[in-house]
Amino acid sequence: MTRKPYRAPQRWSWWLKNPAYRRYLLREATALPLFIYALVLVTGLYRYTQGQLAFTRWLEALQAPGWLVFHAVAVAACVLHAATWIELVPKLLVVPGISGRSIKRGHQVAALIGSALVLGAALVSWPLAGGAS
């Protein structure tokens, strides 16, 4: 008997079929808001080089509701990105004698402390640098 294997093509919608794939794609999609956020920051730096007025205008423009929503989304994406990434760390970093769970916890604690330090430094230095004025 001749063979006639059936090949199902991979459709564009493959990732909709399974919750595991949807979670994966959501994780990957977090890169988009982070990319846009990086662009926003770079724009800010550029405006800064153009003088105080340009920089203040840039800051004011970011007060628009659309940009506030965007920043909320970007923070959420950033947290999700970090959380899912740390979830995967024990698969990459295998240290004999230390459980994957401990490695994960260590990363979570380090990320929290690191973020708190950066945030603290920013909050302290902002008024010192003269705030938005």
Binding site: N18, A20, Y21, Y24, E28, L88, K91
Partner: peptide
Amino acid sequence: CTFVGYCSE
């Protein structure tokens, strides 16, 4: 591999 991770599940 793009670390989908479903294989391990």
